[in-house]
């Protein structure tokens, strides 16, 4: 019998990165459970969970519930109520995603280099499924200057590469002014 040790998806990628008024750091590991209510079960599920997010919504109950796609939400954190499987398909996604937080006065300017969406228009908090460059992206807007960026675990390197490049250029532009 062996004991396995865990490793971080951003291992070896030199986070945090700081360039100008933007900082990128990894989000600490957290339990993520994908919850997809079965047809006709959304209400029952919502009452068990204290709500279920509509498209784009982030609900803070005892857990953080983040809408992540058609009929699916991620529950961030431990302590999921028992018996949810009667109402929903559940799958563990804690290890499938790599999350990094981009924060700072230039966070939006950096994301404007990579995400084809007007992030100013999003509510706080809210979630969006889109692309970062060519990477799949789950974006959670935490504030006007802080965004959690989640992509597939295997693409953590590309995520940090893209953000690093954009952060450097935005910082260099600022230095020109």
């Amino acid at each position: 019998m062996i004991e396995l040790s865990a490793s971080d998806p951003f291992a070896g990628l030199h986070l945090p990165l700081v360039h100008g008024a933007a900082r990128l750091d990894s989000v600490p590991p957290v339990r993520i459970t994908a919850i997809a209510p079965l047809p006709g079960q959304t209400e029952a599920l919502a009452s068990a969970l204290g709500g279920f997010p509509a498209p784009g919504e982030v609900l803070d109950t005892t857990l953080r519930l983040v809408w992540v796609g058609r009929g699916q939400a991620f529950a961030f954190g431990e302590g999921l109520p028992e018996g949810l499987e009667r109402h929903a398909a559940l799958s563990d996604q804690s290890d499938g995603w790599a999350g990094a937080q981009l924060e700072g006065a230039d966070a939006q300017a950096v994301l404007a280099r990579l995400v084809a969406m007007d992030l100013r228009a999003l509510a706080v908090p809210s979630s969006v499924r889109t692309l970062l460059g060519h990477l799949p992206l789950l974006l959670v807007k935490q504030s006007e200057t802080a965004f959690d960026l989640w992509t597939y675990r295997s693409m953590a390197g590309s995520l940090s590469h893209e953000l690093d490049r954009a952060m450097r250029m935005v910082a260099a532009r600022r230095a020109l002014a």
């Binding site: 498209p55 969406m117 889109t130």
Partner: peptide, 11 residues
């Protein structure tokens, strides 16, 4: 229908 108007590259 889920996400609203989105860039063509997502489709």
């Amino acid at each position: 229908p889920c996400c609203g108007w989105r860039d063509m590259r997502e489709f």
